[in-house]
């Protein structure tokens, strides 16, 4: 017993080092797979508030760029106005409303919620974006996030009262389903942790026709993103020797360096789809 105490006293510093390192590695492993811990929500609120202050200054310097982006965005939206399209037959009238059902019985599926980027990183190997809008302002977990030009930014992983954390596409766990425009092949878009604004697309078989410069869209197969949001353009095609697939390097449609405003996309049918999938799974398991 005495020897044990002596040992602990002799190597106390080293044991403290091991203990702290073990705790750090636990944090790394734990938080990388599971973003839901209470501590991270508290941390969010505190760092979010400091980030908001710093962003106010940063925002001022980017006003011009933000204005241009908004003007562009407005232009795009104005061109989609129903009033700009003349219908040859006046017997029917198109009405689009923000309520869940419009008069034609169309059901609203996607709702865009604008949010300001409070902090953003691109240089780490796991990058996160913080939005100044949380569950008190209707943002929910697992919503997709796009930039004003409809380029995919990431997925909401963590929501606190006034802030939410987005796992950007530049995160090693980020995985979204993408579709090549020309051939229609569907693959996974991931990031290799190296260059920002460069993504990788895997799971495209070698028989598929891939052309440099082709566009990659969201496939719409996941309940997170609607069909047809731009992910990036094909930049380099590498054939993987060990498998029958291509590895395609993409130039991302979003410029992650200069994000100021983004839109979170809410899917109002998501719960229904998830419930259905859950039922189907339960049936197989039982």
């Amino acid at each position: 017993m005495r020897n044990i105490f002596l040992f602990i006293r002799r190597y106390f510093h080293f044991l403290a080092l091991l203990l702290l390192q073990a705790f750090c590695i636990y944090l790394i492993v734990h938080y990388n797979t599971y973003h839901n811990a209470v501590a991270s929500v508290y941390m969010n609120e505190i760092t979010g508030k400091i980030n908001t202050q710093a962003n106010k200054i940063d925002y001022y310097f980017q006003l011009k760029k933000t204005n241009e982006q908004l003007a562009k965005d407005n232009e795009r939206l104005r061109n989609q106005l129903k009033a700009d399209f003349e219908r040859p037959d006046t017997a029917t009238k198109m009405v689009t409303d923000s309520i869940a059902y419009d008069t034609l019985g169309n059901r609203r599926k996607w709702r865009y919620l604008s949010a300001k980027v409070v902090s953003n990183s691109v240089s780490a190997q796991n990058n996160f974006i913080v939005l100044g809008r949380g569950w008190a302002q209707q943002i929910k977990k697992d919503e997709g996030v796009v930039d004003p030009n409809n380029g995919v930014v990431g997925i909401v992983t963590d929501v606190s009262e006034n802030f939410s954390v987005v796992m950007s596409l530049l995160h090693k766990d980020s995985k979204i389903s993408g579709k090549l425009k020309k051939s229609g092949d569907v693959g996974q878009v991931i990031w290799d942790g190296k260059e920002p604004n460069r993504l990788l697309m895997s799971d495209i078989r070698k028989s598929a026709k891939v052309i440099k410069g082709d566009t990659v869209y969201t496939s719409g197969f996941t309940p997170t993103f609607p069909y047809g949001l731009m992910i990036g353009t094909v930049d380099e095609i590498i054939s993987d020797k060990s498998t029958n697939n291509y590895i395609i390097k993409l130039k991302s449609a979003t410029n992650f360096f200069s994000l100021q405003y983004v839109y979170a996309i809410e899917n109002s049918q998501k719960e229904e789809i998830n419930r259905l999938l859950e039922n189907a799974k339960n049936k197989i398991n039982n």
């Binding site: 080293f14 750090c24 790394i28 760092t47 400091i50 980030n51 780490a124 996160f128 963590d158 954390v165």
Partner: peptide, 24 residues
Amino acid sequence: LGFTLDGFRHNPGFHAAACVLLAY
């Protein structure tokens, strides 16, 4: 110190581990 920076980076553990080793 490391944990504070990790809080801003939303990735707890990495910088804390590096700082502890540095201090050792």
